[in-house]
Amino acid sequence: MVKEDIIFAGFGGQGVMLMGRLLAYAGMKEDRHVSWMPSYGPEMRGGTANCTVIVSDKEIPSPLTSKADIVVAMNLPSLLKFLDKVKPGGKLFINTSLIEEDVARDDIEVIEVNANDIALEVGEGRVANMVMLGALINKVGIVKMDTIKSSLSDVLSKRNHDLLEVNKQALDNGAKLV
């Protein structure tokens, strides 16, 4: 049975909800069971935002997870909040463009991605989320990169469709990092 629980966390505006939705959407396209559960409420106003995505070959019982296989931390507050949530043996992706601290756990694999820097190289600071997602997909699979790319136009709101190509580029450049 393949089941992956992933938590994406960052501050509002970093596009962590979008990362999660894109992965869930791609999972759905590959006929997997998926769920996407956002945090909601006042904490999102300027604070941290996070979502839990589950992709599974079986029906998904709880759409929340106590111990995630993968945590993606896009900023320091998210790292502090979710470090303990990574399963022993699980993977932690951290955005080293914004996180300088060392990770105080040695029972997990830490993957460092300087997402904002790479995004700026692509020429669009806002696509740091896609750099990170590219790295994640290349490292752990879950779904095919092609499915992620072909899902973009469905998941991105229409007014952002001029950014489709930049997003794809960011996914590729992120993938190259790992």
């Binding site: 939705r21 869930a24 759905m28 069971h33 998926v34 769920s35 996407w36 559960m37 956002p38 909601y40 998904i60 759409p63 929340l64």
Partner: peptide
């Protein structure tokens, strides 16, 4: 509840 309302599934 809020969870069913906020979550996304196919």
């Amino acid at each position: 509840d809020g969870m069913i309302g906020q979550m996304m599934e196919p």
